Amino acid sequence: MTYRQALRDTLRSEMLRDENVFLIGEEIGIFEGSYKITAGLLAEFGEQRVRDTPISEEGFTGAAIGAAMLGLRPVVELMTINFSLLALDQIVNHAAKIHGMFGGQCRVPLVIRTPGGGGQQLGATHSQNIELYYAFVPGLKVVAPSNPADAKALLLAAIRDDDPVLFLENLALYNTRGEVPDHDEPAEIGRAAITRPGTDITVIGYSRMAAVGLQVAEELARTEGIDCEVIDLRSLRPLDRPTVVESVRRTHAAVVLEDDWLTYGIGAEIAATISDGAFDQLDAPVRRVAMAEVPLPYAKSLETAALPSADDAATAIRETLSAVGRLRREEAR
């Protein structure tokens, strides 16, 4: 099924399972959501559990936090992660801190679903990947599934978690397809997945770039005999550092792929993690592939040039292996 359908079906199954789960956000009811994730849910569950709101991210996110404190399990839909900036105080100063500030007396079982990413010609203020803002904050959990199966498993985990979870979706993934298991088994938040075992180099990504990394790895294995191990982080907070470090200790090289800006990005944290845990095993510096450090252009040709691509990832992998003499001459050609 599609990534989109996996999300929709999971929301429905969790609403059937637990009457405390409800949805809240702009245009999620009558309009069925900007991306049709909530299609049919208002008709099935009614307006008490699928709540359309005014255009006030700070207001309805704050209302959801209050509902969570009183025992409900709200799932907020923010139309894009860019609009989360309007609710930044509620997310960072309230949702993330209430449990700690009040000595564990109150939990905030809140999910905030929101898409991000470029490639859709939505302009600089609607195409950002600003997950770093939230992965930086203790008290929040941040997950970023790259495929339909993980979209289901991580959304199950997020809804059932007693802590606030930011659930990141990439617009480019909504129509991607994949096998999705019938059973409702939540993923473990904070556990990365090795989506392709390999021996030559470790390729690390999350969300769209985890899917790109896997695609590139399969193509390089088929055409050039390069054996990449691919890690899908899946969770940005907590971060599965041991899986990353153990892989790099085996392969002795790493390339990190990310859709955000290079400076201060998620890739910088991964590179630091590798330096801390596998420095003596590295045969070459960690390479990072990220988007151009510009507000994303609207013009399609410029937008495409600014975003990281499969070709960028393949080039970084080849150059890293070539630098340490592990790329065969015929592969280099």
Rank of each mutant, 00 (worst) to 15 (best):
E224T: 06
I98E: 01
A68I: 00
Q48M: 11
N82M: 04
L155I: 02
D162A: 05
I204H: 04
G117W: 09
P295F: 11
V216Q: 07
M15V: 07
I112D: 01
A67M: 08
S13C: 11
D163C: 01
L11F: 13
G190N: 07
Q281T: 11
D182I: 13
I159Y: 11
I30Y: 05
A151Q: 12
G119P: 13
L220E: 14
D232Q: 07
G46H: 11
M1T: 15
R234E: 02
L220P: 05
Y264E: 03
E258Q: 15
S275C: 01
A68N: 04
M1V: 13
Q120R: 14
A193N: 06
K36A: 14
N20W: 03
K36T: 00
V108L: 06
I226H: 09
A43N: 15
M69Q: 14
L257I: 03
G205W: 08
D260C: 13
D162R: 11
R222H: 14
G104C: 07
S309A: 09
Y35K: 11
K141D: 02
T223Q: 12
A172T: 08
I231H: 02
G40H: 13
Q5K: 15
A313T: 09
A284E: 04
T2L: 08
L88T: 01
V111M: 04
I98C: 04
T195N: 03
R107F: 04
A158L: 06
A306K: 08
E246A: 12
E229R: 14
K141V: 02
K36E: 10
A323F: 02
L166H: 04
I189F: 02
T251D: 10
E246N: 14
I194S: 03
I159K: 06
A63M: 15
E58W: 01
N129D: 12
R49S: 13
W261T: 01
L173Y: 14
L173M: 15
